[in-house]
Write a protein that binds this DNA or RNA. Sequence first.
DNA 1: GTCCAGGATCACT
DNA 2: AGTGATCATGGA
Length: 327
Amino acid sequence: MGARSHRLAVTGSFEAGDDPFRSPSFLDWLESSDWSPWLIPADMPRLGVDVLRELLDGGQTFHWNRVLSDPVERWVGWISDQAYQLMLDPDGMMLVRALGDGDAKGGENTLTRWMIPESERQSELDCLPWRSDAHLARCIRALPGLRVLRQDPATALLAFIISANKQIPQIKTAHRRLAQRFGESVFPGFNRPPGWDVLSKLSLEDWKFCGVGYRAPYLLETARRLAEDTGLLDRIAMMDYPTARARLMEFPGVGGKVADCILLYGCHRQEAFPLDTWIRRVMTDRYSLAGWTDSQILHFASIHFGSGAGLAQQYLFAWERWQHRQA
DNA sequence: GTCCAGGATCACT
DNA sequence: AGTGATCATGGA
C-alpha cells in the first residue's frame, strides 16, 4: 500500500522514459543489436509513406510509433506480443525485422497475415461498389494499398474500450502507460503490451493511473469476466456477426461502435461498419443522409457496401480525415 | 478558457 | 424506441 500510494504521488506526469522513441539509447539499441535481417514480406504491395502512416497510426492499431531517423522513416511496434521494426525501401516495398530475443524469426509471414496479403485485399476490394459509387472510387484511388489489418480479439477489445471518446494520441498514451507499468520490459521504456491475464490483476487505481479516466470501472469489470471465462472471447469470435456483436455489447464500455471495431479489426469481420463521428460526417456530407439515425445508416451501409462494408468504411474514414487536415 | 475527441450509459419520455 | 446530460482526460 505504501509503495502504491508513493507511485500515485509521482504519477501525474510521466518522465522521459514515457517516450523512448526519440531517446538516443533506444535508437542505439535498435541499431547495434544483431537483430534478424531485414526481410520483404510476401504478397505485399508498394506503399506510399502516407498510406503506411494511415495503416500504423490511423486508428486501427495503437501499438506503433515512429522512430526518429533520416532520411527514411521507421516504425516500431507490436503484433500481439512480438515487437517488429518496419520501413519502406525506395521503391515502396515493405521491409520488416523482428526485435527482441531468441526464437523471433524474421516475421515476414506474421506481418503478411497481419497486413493481409495483397491478393486477398484485391478480392475484398472487388466486392465493393466502387463502379457505381464515385466517392468511394475517389477514396480508393487516393489511398492505394490501404487495408483493414488482421489483429486479435483480445487486443482489439482492450484498445477500443479505451478508444471511446478519446483522440488517437491519447489512446496511444494510455497503451504506453499500461505497458510501462504492467508489461514485461524489453528495453527500458519499451515494454510488451500486457495481456488480459495480467490486466485482470489491476486495481481501479491502477487503471486510472494509466489515463483511461471514467472507463476504468468498465475495464476492471471486463477483465474480471475474461478471467472468469478465459475462452469467452474466442467463442464470441466464432459466432455469426449479429450474435457476436450483441455478445460483445454485453461487456461494459462496449456499445455498437466499439463492438464493430472489435469485430472488424480484431476478427477481420468485414460486415462490421464502425459508425463514429467521422463516418457520420461522411454519411451526411457525401451520401446526403442528414437526419438519418444510426441504425438507418447501418442498414444503408450493409445494403450499399455489402459484405465488405468495413473495408469501405476504412477508405471513407481515412479520406475524410485526410481531407479535413488539408483544410 | 473552450471545445472536442474513432462513445457508452443512465435517466428520462 | 428515441433524446439529453454526464462521464475523465488531454490535445488543439
